[in-house]
Write a protein that binds this DNA or RNA. Structure first.
Lengths: 202, 202
DNA sequence: ACCTGAACACCGTTCAAGT
DNA sequence: ACCTGAACACCGTTCAAGT
């Protein structure tokens, strides 16, 4: 077993092992406590080996963030295709956003914590972010077309829902809003978002 | 001048000098790039000297966060005392929150970025946070008493407004929402929050 | 009371060298 | 092609020693 482990990452899965170790650690200790060297240690490899797979620490975090937005998009798409009228779909989308944050707190923190892309070094990360927003935007526009939602700039209404879900998830993860459990948090969000949805109803 | 500087921090202002250096650096490079050693360098002092004023790096950041919440409370209180009906006051409060985030981005990042208080080591920080929320809560309850706002758990309605302002400020500072300028951001927030306020109106 | 100097155990990153 | 070992310039934190 130790011998097998010694060559385990010659098959191209070191990148993934490093990412997994990173997510483990970030989930427990926060993104500011994450180090490349410890991820390499956990993966059973010398710290310099990480640089064969990621240009630097930021590149590893950007990969995590990008994967995170991809997963989030999948979740939001499922919610957008759920049963119900426009308002119920928007509730589902917001709820899916909050659920994602609680199911994947490490990913969520990496996606919205450190300033990974201030120099636009990771265009694909930006693209994935916009794809996620687009799903929300489409749901708003469909609701407007069907006459279920108020008129107005669809981008603005989508942003209103995003800020609500994002603000809630961020504040709960940061323990500024206290909830008993992840399940409770989701139910609480549905309460919180109700006035906004009332305001969006035509 | 260099001689004067040599003894400048024997008068008790090193703590402040370190905080100022920290805010400067965090404003430019982000909280993850801040180091105690560089703050000490900028303050013209050996790095070990910082430990005479702060227990550790986290304590310095907690001081910044606590000061930030105090300033935020002042701003929110001013907004809560502004002219107008309940909805106008809530708009002012949300707007003040967003304005604070843009005027003091470094403070805002420290307040809501790293997990400074997961072990409840800084109870005064938690107290200041709650004081800020209380101002919002009072405004909601006054509006409910006057019959201008919908009934319901005041804490939930206050949380709805908080998530909206906080989500907006966070996403703009993180460049997930793009705005041309700080002034534009504030005006844009007023647009974004409109549906929520409609939903809060009785 | 406040700061310095030296030390310790860490980092991120680079690069020649090994297989 | 992928990893190791050694090196470099950094950190946060501690502590005896200086004024």
């Amino acid at each position: 077993m130790p011998v097998a482990k010694k060559r385990a990452y010659h098959h191209g899965d070191l990148a993934r092992a490093l990412v997994d170790a990173a997510l483990q650690h970030i989930g427990r200790e926060g993104v500011e406590a994450f180090t490349l060297r410890e991820a390499a240690r956990v993966a059973g490899v010398t710290h310099a080996a990480a640089y064969r797979h990621f240009a630097d620490k930021r590149a590893l975090l950007a990969t995590i963030a990008e994967d995170g937005f991809r997963t989030l998009s999948d979740d939001l798409r499922d919610a957008a295709h759920s049963e119900g009228d426009a308002l119920e779909k928007l509730t589902s989308i917001g709820r899916a956003y909050v659920r994602f944050a609680f199911r994947e707190p490490a990913r969520f923190r990496v996606m919205f914590g450190p300033r990974l892309n201030y120099d636009r070094r990771f265009p694909s990360l930006e693209a994935e972010t916009q794809r996620a927003f687009r799903i929300l935007l489409d749901a708003i526009e469909a609701g407007q077309r069907d006459g279920e939602l108020i008129e107005g700039v669809s981008r603005d209404l989508a942003t209103a829902l995003w800020t609500s879900a994002h603000g809630f998830a961020s504040l709960v993860l940061h323990r500024k809003i206290i909830v008993r459990s992840a399940t409770r948090a989701e139910a609480y969000y549905v309460e919180i978002v109700r006035p906004l949805l009332t305001g969006l109803r035509r």
